[in-house]
Amino acid sequence: MTPQFVDFNADGFTDIVTGTFDGSPHISYGSEAGFGEPTHILDGEGNRMLLSQFWDYNDKSWQGSGGQHCISAAAFDWDDDGDYDLLLGDYRKGLLYLRMNNGTNAKPVFDVENIQVMLGDKPFAVAGGMSAPRLVDWDGDGLTDIVTGGMSRGGVYLYRNTGQLGKPEFAPAEPLLARETTDPQAAKAPSTGCYVEAADYDGDGDLDLLVGGYANWNSQRQSLTEEQQQRVKELQKQQTEVTEKIQQFSKAMDDQLSKAQTAEARRAVIAEMRANKEYKELTDKQRAVSQELMKFQGQSKRAAGVWLYIRK
């Protein structure tokens, strides 16, 4: 969740606009006393704006929004008519949508439909998904550009506004930071889930980057002898085989669970599987193989943090 500090309702006090994992834009209105209790930003018909999907346990499938899920929102006067419109960012496909404000800042009337933001004739899409769009005039040409970070693939990207005031057009992504490769030794830089702030951190007149996200690394990775490499292959084969067998057990359990009418019946199904001798041998085998593999391959680790990139 990226907060945007902006006087959204033009009352002279800074508000907080943001999107969250619930798929909708939110606001906390500022006042002389401080910030108010957060609430949803509603469309012109008084309804919650929603761009989300959810797992339907009955149908066992994702539902809603064609696989898109809004987790970010940013106020931006798209058409330069003096009021804030809303950008809604999708984290899964990295798409960007616009809700035009047909009212004013004090009395907004947002469209009831999302307008997809395009890059030429193709949808604006951040490869690997988008964290949140940040609005900044990166190149000092008077037009607001978009800087954003990638989710599953990391990286930080600039989408330069090559249009006009009130008619934004965005050029294809220019990487400001390439995705960090996984460091074998330690958490040195974010490589996934990158949320970015572009700001002059050190006061030298240019824009630096603050990037929140996850560093991913692998502990104890080592060079392997040929014999060890052969052993790793054997273990990986065993791991695949045992995993497939466990999945067969899991599928059988799922089938039984779906037929179980009561919680007690469901608990009995689970208990029966756990007591199954073959299942227990498989899970023990899986654990032993994983531990031996870890000795050769190291252990994947992940840690959150915020990193500063000072511009040279």
Binding site: D137, G205, R311
Partner: peptide, 20 residues
């Protein structure tokens, strides 16, 4: 929303990251 500086992405070079 708007900070004016005169740089281009293809010129942008950054120091090694420092964890905050």
């Amino acid at each position: 929303a708007t900070i004016a500086v005169d740089v281009r992405a293809d010129d942008a070079q950054f120091e090694q990251p420092v964890e905050i």
